[in-house]
């Protein structure tokens, strides 16, 4: 039983490219998650009951089913029913495959981010809304100018955690053949038969990404507290 990392001289670019793909995937996932999450939170908190119900139902359903099922659903099931993501040629990668992964991850993340945003909005003092409305501002102006900026500040740490979670969970999209870090690692160990060493490297790369992210967030959080 001895460790042999000599395969790295040949395969290290796969880890680097995989990590890059993982990061791009995660950034887009969190962006979609945030945008859709804000919409879900506003629907949920709004006065129009059918939309509120729809948002709650979506959140429960997404959180109550496996991410893998959702990914397969978007990548295999929707095209079968005629919902195909159009290919964009000349990008150098398989756009529909990549987009399916991001879409599935983003729509999944949105269910969690929606709950974070909802809690953030509810944590903003009611007096802020009353003051804005008493000046004649509309509900939307109040939300956009007064409530959401304060809610966003409250939830930034939780959003950061979501980003860290997404970096790790994105490894699952290897099942539809997206060449992110986990997929590339599997390529390395199946060619080199160095399972132990490949997975150690893979884990370390994930850890560097998540640890750096959480340290950056901690610094940001401290800075925002100081400015407040």
């Amino acid at each position: 039983m001895e460790l042999n990392f000599s395969f790295m001289t040949k395969y290290w670019p796969l880890f680097v490219r995989g990590a890059g793909t993982t990061l791009v995937l995660s950034v887009f996932t969190v962006l979609i998650g945030l945008i859709v999450g804000v919409v879900l939170a506003l629907m949920r908190l709004g006065k129009f009951k059918p939309l509120s119900f729809l948002s709650a139902a979506y959140t429960e359903f997404i959180r109550g089913t496996p991410l893998m099922v959702q990914i397969f659903f978007i990548f295999y099931a929707l095209p079968q029913m005629g919902f195909k993501i159009p290919n964009i040629t000349g990008l150098g990668f398989d756009f529909p495959r990549f987009a399916s992964g991001i879409l599935a991850m983003g729509l999944n993340s949105a269910a969690y981010v929606g709950e974070i945003v909802r809690a953030g909005i509810q944590a903003v003092d009611k007096g802020q809304t009353e003051a804005a409305r008493s000046l004649g501002m509309t509900a939307w102006q109040t939300m956009r100018r007064v409530v959401l900026p304060q809610a966003f500040k409250n939830i930034l740490p939780a959003l950061g955690n979501e980003f860290v979670t997404v970096i790790k969970e994105s490894s699952i999209v290897m099942v539809i053949g997206i060449t992110e870090l986990m997929f590339n690692t599997s390529q390395v160990y199946s060619s080199s038969y160095r399972y132990f060493e490949s997975l150690i490297v893979c884990a370390l790369v994930y850890f560097v990404m998540t640890f750096t992210t959480s340290r950056l967030l901690a610094v940001m959080e401290r800075r925002m507290k100081r400015d407040a």
Binding site: D125, G127, Q128, E130, A131, A132, R145, V146, P149, Q150
Partner: peptide, 9 residues
Amino acid sequence: FQQFNLFNN
């Protein structure tokens, strides 16, 4: 208002 309710942001 009693609690001022200035916009904190």
